[in-house]
Design a protein around this nucleic acid. Structure first.
Length: 407
DNA sequence: TCTGGGGTCCTAGGACCC
DNA sequence: TCTGGGGTCCTAGGACCC
């Protein structure tokens, strides 16, 4: 077979690989403490309160016994009594995921190899995938699985076929036949809600789903959703392989070890989340225009308040000031004990001038130079010495918001 | 002894503008 | 002087993914 020369035929057959680390958190936990954890059944638990946590990941041995991610820790260990329960080793995960291209999440990435045929001297995609797998294992000590195909969807689905520690490439033209072998629930983006809606109408298999006319699907799910699913269940996907848009949102939340209605506790938790997201915002060189405060009530009802500000902000003080009023609103609306409090930033922009335009003289700025210098200094100290400054020491600046006087 | 935390994207209604 | 139809932004909520 000749090495494929670049052709002018369009569209060119795309060559996409999806690389996914097998049980990433489990592998990292073992790396962090091999003497204790090597060869053990492991349950990784997430959350600030282990008691109220859920399963983040589990070793294949536990999965075989029915342990699934997002399962409450109240039930998971019963399925697998000999499992060792460990918290997610965040630092090891961070370190280990660094060498891997960090596109889709901490443990998966898409590689666009379209147009690299000549570079790889006509090497089949499957052989390229195997080389990458071996190379990654050597450099990171992590086992990965790789799926390949002509689009992202098929490549990702092929990865689950490849697991664990394997390679599976779907040949061009084989997309429909490959997807036909899967369950509807295997399609990413199809969760319990649409699954239930289909099931109630007697559609339980991929074959049955595909036999449906597009019009019927549109009546059931709505035009947009139907179009999307119609293409997905045929293995069609034209989304670009990777987009380098920056972060769309930054958020931090915490679940209390006990539900609380104590205003001071709520406020100090809010402050902690504000300091966390604000530092992350500045680290990424961004400003935020929209702020959201979220409460999960003791009865598991989620409520949120958000506000879009007339100008982008990035300092702890300005963000906390806005967050406080949103929290107060939420508490006034319903004052039952809270289970969780969180803060989110959206509408992220790269400059303080990217707002809607502020009318001159109408209001003092939400944050001034002094606030920004203060936040910058805190970041600098943190960078050098770690978390030595607790939240609060810098925020209790009382009084006017503006620079004081209109000049 | 229920139900984490980091995200993305979508929807639906209202305000507001043309 | 009983009323239209876009488009965009904002807010609240929710589905889903890893």
């Amino acid at each position: 077979m000749r090495a494929a020369a670049p052709t002018s035929r369009s569209p060119r057959t795309r060559r996409i690989l999806h690389v996914d680390v097998d049980a990433m958190f489990v592998q990292c936990a073992v790396m962090a403490d091999p003497a204790r954890l090597e060869g053990q059944r492991l349950i990784l638990v997430g959350g600030s309160s282990e008691r109220r946590g859920v399963v983040t990941s589990a070793s294949y041995g536990c999965r075989a016994l029915g342990v699934r991610s997002a399962m409450p820790m109240a039930t998971a260990p019963r399925l697998c009594p000999d499992a060792v329960v460990v918290p997610v080793p965040r630092e090891t995960v961070r370190q280990a995921s660094r060498p891997v291209v960090h596109l889709a999440s901490v443990d998966e990435a898409y590689l666009e190899l379209t147009g690299t045929e000549a570079l790889h001297l006509g090497e089949p995609l499957e052989a390229t995938a195997r080389r990458i797998r071996e190379d990654l294992r050597e450099r990171t000590r992590l086992d990965v699985s790789i799926g390949g195909g002509t689009n992202r969807l098929v490549a990702k689905l092929a990865t689950s076929r490849a697991k664990p520690a394997g390679v599976h490439v779907v040949p061009p033209g084989g997309e429909e036949a490959f997807v036909a072998t899967l369950e509807i629930s295997d399609l990413p983006g199809v969760g319990p809600v649409p699954l239930g809606a289909l099931r109630r109408r007697g559609i339980a298999t991929m074959v049955a789903l595909r036999a449906l006319p597009a019009e019927t699907l549109a009546v059931w799910l709505g035009e947009d959703r139907a179009k999307w699913l119609w293409r997905r269940c045929r293995g069609m996907d034209s989304s670009p392989p990777g987009d380098d848009r920056g972060a769309r949102s930054i958020s931090s939340e915490t679940t209390f070890s006990q539900d609380t209605a104590d205003p001071e506790l709520l406020e100090s938790a809010l402050l902690e989340q504000v300091v966390t997201v604000a530092a992350s915002l500045r680290r990424q060189g961004l400003f935020a225009r929209t702020l959201t405060v979220r409460l999960r009530d003791a009865d598991f009802r989620d409520r949120s308040r958000s506000r879009t500000l007339p100008e982008p902000i990035r300092t702890d003080r300005a963000i906390y000031a806005a967050a406080r009023t949103l929290l107060d609103d939420l508490r006034r609306q319903r004052s039952v004990p809270a289970r969780l409090v969180g803060v989110g930033l959206t509408n992220l922009v790269s400059s303080a001038d990217d707002g809607q335009g502020v009318l001159f003289g109408v209001a003092p700025p939400l944050e001034d130079e002094r606030d920004r210098r203060l936040s910058g200094a805190v970041d600098e100290i943190r960078r050098k010495h770690g978390e030595v400054i607790g939240p609060g020491s810098v925020l209790r600046r009382k009084g006017r918001h503006g620079p004081g006087g209109m000049g």
